[in-house]
Nucleic acid binder design. Sequence first.
DNA 1: TATTGTTATACTCTATAACTATA
DNA 2: TATAGTTATAGAGTATAACAATA
Lengths: 165, 165
Amino acid sequence: MDDRDCTVIPPDPLLRSPVYLVAELGKLIRRFSAERLTGEDGVRLPHVMVLACVHVEGPMSQREVGDRLRMDAGDVVGVVDALERLGYAERRRDPRDRRRWSVAATGAGVTFLAARREQAMLLYRQIFEPLGPEELEVFQGLVLKVLAHHDPRFADTVPGLGSEV
Amino acid sequence: MDDRDCTVIPPDPLLRSPVYLVAELGKLIRRFSAERLTGEDGVRLPHVMVLACVHVEGPMSQREVGDRLRMDAGDVVGVVDALERLGYAERRRDPRDRRRWSVAATGAGVTFLAARREQAMLLYRQIFEPLGPEELEVFQGLVLKVLAHHDPRFADTVPGLGSEV
DNA sequence: TATTGTTATACTCTATAACTATA
DNA sequence: TATAGTTATAGAGTATAACAATA
C-alpha cells in the first residue's frame, strides 16, 4: 500500500518542527496528568499549582496568584473556590486593602500538597525520564530563554537549577 | 507558620519545572498563532498541518492523516470538510483501493499553502528567535527524545535536521 | 468515515465593590 | 465631602483542542 512506500523525503518536516513537537509534548503531559494525577476529589494540576504557590510564597491575593502562574484572574477564582470547598485553602480579607482576598493554604492543604507533590514529582520524572539531569537542565534553560524573550516576567526567573513539579 | 520553613530556594520551583514551562510555551505558541496566523477564512494551524501533510507526503486517507499528525480521526473529518469547502483539498476514491477515500491537496490548496507556510515559518522563527540554529537543534533533539520514549511512532522520526513549520 | 457530545483550558465582557486621587 | 478613575473579584459566556461513544 502507500503507508510505508519509503518516499524520498522520508519523515516530514512538520513532524520535527519545534512548534509541532511542543504541542505533542503538551498533549503527552496533559494525558499523563489526567490519567495519573487527577484525584478523586477533582483536584487537577491548576489546583495543585495554586495551592503550592500560596504555600511556597506565602498568602497572596488572587490577582497575584494569577500573575505568578500566568493564569487568568477569573479562572483563579474557580480554583480557589474548589480548594476552599475541600478545606485546603481559605480566603481572608486583606485588612489593608479590603478589595483583596488573601488566599492561604490550610494545614489540611499543606498535608495534601505534600502527598500530591510527591505524586507529581514521580510522574514528571517519568515523563522526562529519558533525559539525564544535565539534559533536563539544558532543556529548561532553552525553554526559559524563549519565554523570557517574549514575557519579561520570566526574566527574573533565574535560570538556575530546581525542577520540582 | 509553615510557609517558609523547609525552603531555602527563593523564587519558586514551580516556575521553573519543565512541565510548567512547556505549558507556558504552548500558551505562547497558541497566542501567536491565533493573533497572527488565523486567516480571514477561518483557517487555523490544524488546517495548515493537514494540508501540508497531504501535500508533502502525497494523498492519503483521513485515518492516515490522523496517525501522522496524532490527531483524532473524528477531528480530521471536520478539518478536511473545511479545506474542501475552501477548495484547498478534495476527497476522492483511492484508485488502488476503491474502498478508501484519499485526501489530496488541490492546485489552489498548494498555492495557498505556499503563502501560508511562509507566514508560519516567519512566525515561528520569531517565536524561537532567541535560540541559535544549534540551540534549536538541541531543543528539537531533546523533545524528540522524550516523545520517542513514550510513543514509538516518534522513533522513526530521525533526529536529523529540518525545521519548517 | 462521520456525527455527536463531553471536558479542560484560555480567554472576553460585564458588573460590583473597594480603593485612590483630586476638585 | 463629592467626584472621577482604578483595581480586585466574580460571573456569564465563547472558542478551541482533545477525546469518547457510537452510528
